[in-house]
Design a protein around this nucleic acid. Structure first.
Length: 235
DNA sequence: GCGACAG
DNA sequence: ATCTTGTCGC
């Protein structure tokens, strides 16, 4: 039974408290299959400018083979209870992501999330949030830094890595997923170690900056948003 | 007090 | 996240 405050806290203080509770339950050691064959990627798209604040969550389920052909997709949308506040992204998107994941025919063995895991002020980024609530292995795949700084030199070649450090701790790994692109920041979400997280993300790359699960979720969420916009125009 | 600040 | 055409580089 997950506390309602973990999903829909009434206030920012309750949200902050929930993050501390979730972070305390996050596992940073590997507790997942040797080779996850069912991986889900999730991402959210917002409403167009001027339109009322809405969130559209897309969940994509991929199998170990045919990684560019989703086995299934789940879509959910609605009005978020939280505005976007750096450090509190989960309370805005998690409700819809849970709904989108529930529409998948099977429970994934691993979830790749667009955003940070433990590389967060309170060790509770959206990937950790989702992972703990669902008690599923999860990894944070962020496109920019929230806290901390990259130490050392990050090579320009694909596969290069460098630690993201904050308060003397390595909280994530900067990964050059493709030559010539800005790095990704990979962090433990839940039940996956930092090093394993980087290996898994690397294994699910397919020539693009983002790993397939997240890349497809991002693309499909965007397409669904455009489709909705067209529909609204026709009405 | 000032600057930073996932999506 | 979103607003947006052309353009520079592999």
């Amino acid at each position: 039974m997950t506390p309602e405050d973990w999903i829909r806290p009434a206030h920012l203080d309750a949200a902050r408290k929930a993050q501390h509770e979730i972070a305390a339950r996050a596992e940073t050691a590997d507790r997942l299959p040797e080779a996850p064959a069912l991986v889900a990627g999730v991402d959210c798209a917002g409403a167009a400018r001027g339109a009322p604040d809405r969130v559209r969550a897309m969940a994509v389920l991929l199998g170990a083979e045919a990684r560019s052909r989703p086995l299934a997709t789940g879509l959910a949308e609605g009005v978020p209870a939280f505005p976007y506040i750096p450090g509190f992204l989960g309370f805005r998107e998690v409700p819809f992501v849970l709904e989108a994941l529930a529409k998948l025919p099977q429970r994934p063995e691993l979830i790749l999330v667009d955003g940070h895991g433990v590389s967060h002020p309170r060790g509770c980024g959206i990937a950790t949030h989702l992972g703990v609530v669902l008690d599923l292995p999860s990894i944070g795949v962020a496109k920019s830094v929230l806290v901390g700084r990259v130490e050392g030199e990050l090579g320009l070649e694909a596969g290069s890595t460098a630690p993201l450090v904050w308060k003397g701790r390595r909280i994530a790994t900067a990964l050059r997923s493709k030559r010539g692109v800005q790095p990704l920041f990979i962090s433990t979400g839940h039940r996956v170690s930092q090093d394993r997280a980087v290996r898994l993300v690397t294994e699910w790359l397919a020539g693009y900056r983002l790993p397939e699960p997240t890349r497809l979720a991002d693309k499909l969420a965007g397409e669904a948003r455009l489709a909705a916009k067209e529909g609204a125009t026709l009405l």
